[in-house]
């Protein structure tokens, strides 16, 4: 069996392996069980929840 075949088979085994490790890591850290916190991650004090951004088109008609 040549080196490339070993590399290919190794890759095929490594990728699901890494995925399983990542899943285990995530569940240990509670990443899968933090819905409220995780859903709020795109927001912070500077751009909080409840405030729309990027409202640049058609303003004249929309706001007086």
């Amino acid at each position: 069996m040549n080196v490339l075949a070993i590399l290919m088979i190794g890759g095929v085994l490594a990728v699901p392996g890494v995925a399983l490790v990542a899943l285990r890591w995530a569940s240990h850290r509670g990443e899968l069980n933090l819905p409220e916190r995780a859903a709020l991650l795109p927001f912070d004090e500077e751009e909080p929840v409840g405030r729309a951004t990027d409202q640049i088109l058609n303003r004249q008609s929309a706001e007086s």
Binding site: L32, L34, P35, E36, A38, A39, L40, P42, F43, E47, P48, V49, G50, R51, A52, T53, D54
Partner: peptide, 19 residues
Amino acid sequence: YYFIPKVIGRPIHSYYLSV
């Protein structure tokens, strides 16, 4: 997943579903 919540200022509907 980033821009829809960001633009409308509202978190995604269900984080479980996204996972």
